[in-house]
Design a protein around this nucleic acid. Structure first.
Lengths: 336, 336
DNA sequence: GTGAAAGCGCTAACAT
DNA sequence: ATGTTAGCGCTTTCAC
């Protein structure tokens, strides 16, 4: 690989001149001719700046990481796109990492941040990470932005309008005439689970409907947890006629369990999920879902991290850029 | 962040002594006491080696990248796990990258490899990458291992037993008494598509069955492509009674289209897919699929890359570690 | 058994 | 307008 010194030699100038030209240094006074010669030489040699040299010298990498417990989760697709978009715009490179359990002293944080491989991180914590762990991480004041994971305040997190999303889903069922509505939630200690449940409760309350505790579960977002939840709820002596499921994967599991139990969706039971993904379109029946602005969330996360890294004051951490919207498909219908 | 020199100061030794101890240098003669003092000092200061310093000096990073067009594809889950496993074992760190289109001069390759951010790459090329592009990449002799993407020979790729996988799927349908069997394939220029089709043809031939050309499609692995393929095939005047679908995502789309057309699966049409993923378990009916050893593929890919990076001769590039196996679910049944 | 010193490729402050 | 130089943190050769 060609180095600056190779380029300098070829162009017949000093190394610093080359550096100035190739990095487009702000106040660099370089004659047009030299500039041209340098650029030509760099092109001929196919020069690329060495990452380590640059990082060592400037102690920044222009790399950020997105770390999540399961990157293959379909609802992250849009998030990633948003993150990529904004990162590219700000001239940052994006690296992805998988990590189940984020601890302050954990390997991922140590390797990425403390060894100086990235300038900052976007983190989506998993179900298994306890709130105290996350709080500890926040207190450590590392350049980490938590993505819809925790109430970390403007400085450390960006969040979706989870409550509004749940409200839309719930209201949809109410509008269809359902009065017996259940809620399949995430693990109770997680931030999103709390807020989605809150949205559900609020909507039920303002519609004057009772929330039946035996129609509420809080088992998690995985398909198998959704299945178990549905099984439990529908085995009640008087089961609900409609269900808000707090996550699309859990909803897919719930849908499957309904089939297995011989329950018709939507004839016997309406199901609406929060979050949308390609998988929701391809279930049978196709799943009605509230599409959350994941792409905008991704963009906002990068922007927030950028601001933190550059000490720009932040302007709000709830993504309202695009409102949650109901994707009406075929898993819900009016109460007969 | 503490540096070697900080640790050296605290331990009252030289920088080089610290380096020797902390890197566990092979032939390092250091007294037990010094060793202890250094380790203690490092621990107290919470020392972590600076990535850039180390990389600059040694011109290796001990990082490899896995690059794929869509990391959220569910069938990559196991691959990632295998890659992680083997990478950890060999003391490499894994970074993930998304890239639609891999070109020799493309951004991903330039940034990761030519700027020295990673030592090597694992690449799963997408449908849109043309074979010539890949061949050019192979000729460029970069430290890249293509994962089930191309016939690049032992030196540059690892592949699954695609043909065998297709054979198992096809034979399963034949065993159920089906004689009118169609094949929903991937884009015709891709390596896996060719080999899966070959497996299908071979099995049909040895069963003495005719391959009806109007039951063959080659549209790609996406759900919408699977849908379109099914629609086309089933609109033939005499449609098949069973279908081998070359990819699980396409099969999910096909399944949906079947429902939409009012075709019962498996009553009217049996469907078996190649590849398995959690999404296949959660369709309705649950999808019978041939599980390919993705985890082993991931491990093999890392091992192959490691060998390349260390000039170890390779020992074969077809992953036979674990044979493809039929996951019998409910989307196939005996011909009535 | 331990330390001094060179140098990886780069940027930026300081000459000229 | 261009060049010289120091030094980021690390590994490794060489000297003692």
């Amino acid at each position: 690989m060609a180095t600056l010194s190779d380029v300098a030699l070829r162009a017949g100038v000093s190394i610093s001149a080359v550096s100035r030209v190739l990095t487009d240094a702000p106040g660099a006074r370089v004659s047009p001719q030299t500039r041209e010669r340098i650029k030509a030489a760099a092109a001929e040699l196919n020069y690329r700046p060495n990452f380590a040299g640059r990082a060592l010298r400037s102690s920044r990498t222009n790399v950020i990481a997105l770390v999540a417990p399961d990157l293959t989760n379909a609802f992250l697709t849009e998030l990633m796109l948003g993150v990529e978009e904004e990162a590219a715009r700000l001239d940052y490179m994006l690296l992805l990492g998988r990590s189940e359990d984020l601890q302050p002293g954990g390997e991922m944080i140590s390797r990425l941040l403390r060894e100086g491989r990235v300038d900052g991180m976007l983190v989506q914590v998993g179900d298994t990470t306890r709130p105290e762990q996350v709080q500890e991480l926040v207190r450590a004041d590392l350049p980490i932005i938590f993505v819809n994971s925790i109430d970390a305040g403007e400085r450390s997190g960006v969040v979706l309008q989870d409550e509004e999303g749940a409200m839309i889903a719930t209201q949809h069922l109410i509008d269809l005439g359902h009065t017996h509505v259940g809620f399949v939630g995430g693990l109770p200690h997680t931030y999103t689970a709390k807020r989605r449940l809150a949205g559900f409760r609020a909507t039920m309350r303002s519609a004057g409907l009772e929330v039946n505790r035996s129609w509420l579960t809080a088992r998690g977002y995985r398909p198998d947890q959704g299945r178990a939840a549905l099984n439990l709820i529908m085995s009640r002596s008087q089961p609900p006629t409609a269900l808000v499921v707090a996550n699309v994967n859990a909803a897919i599991g719930a849908l499957k369990e309904a089939r297995q139990l011989g329950l018709g969706v939507p004839e016997d039971l309406s199901i609406v999920s929060i979050h949308d993904a390609w998988t929701a379109e391809n279930t049978w029946p196709p799943l009605t879902a509230v599409k959350m602005p994941m792409r905008e969330l991704g963009r906002a996360a990068v922007a927030a991290l950028y601001n933190r890294l550059h000490d720009v004051p932040v302007a709000g951490h709830v993504v309202t850029d695009r409102a949650p919207v109901l994707m009406l498909r075929e898993s819900t219908r009016a109460l007969r």
